[in-house]
């Protein structure tokens, strides 16, 4: 089913944009922070199922949202990464600070 975000069992799942670059990051930050405020969930999932590309601009967005959720004791993970995004996670060290599925 198509969705931009969904809430399931106390978990907020955010669908990442098709290409997560600086351009998309600006919109995503605001949208994600609004949702995190509205739904004070225990865990946050970044869903990359529809994302074909991510550069270092995506790292800042993800780390920033992780801080916001973890501040409230929540936990974060990233799912459905393609090979390019996997490498970005690897090189940036994001893989060390969050669960990747």
């Amino acid at each position: 089913m198509d969705y931009k975000y969904k809430k399931e069992y106390g978990c907020l799942i955010l669908k990442m944009p098709a290409e997560l670059d600086h351009h998309a990051a600006e919109f995503l930050k605001e949208e994600a922070d609004g949702l995190i405020l509205r739904y004070p969930v225990r865990s946050l999932v970044f869903d990359f199922a529809d994302t074909s590309f991510m550069d270092s601009s995506g790292i800042g967005v993800i780390i920033g949202r992780c801080k916001n959720v973890r501040f409230g004791g929540g936990y974060v993970k990233a799912v459905h990464l393609n090979e390019q995004i996997r490498r970005v996670f690897q090189i940036s060290g994001l893989r060390k600070i969050m669960e990747v599925e």
Partner: peptide
């Protein structure tokens, strides 16, 4: 303040 990761050049080099 813009949540830049500081990884731009590191990525180009990688």
């Amino acid at each position: 303040e813009l949540e830049r990761s500081g990884m731009g050049f590191a990525f180009m080099e990688a």
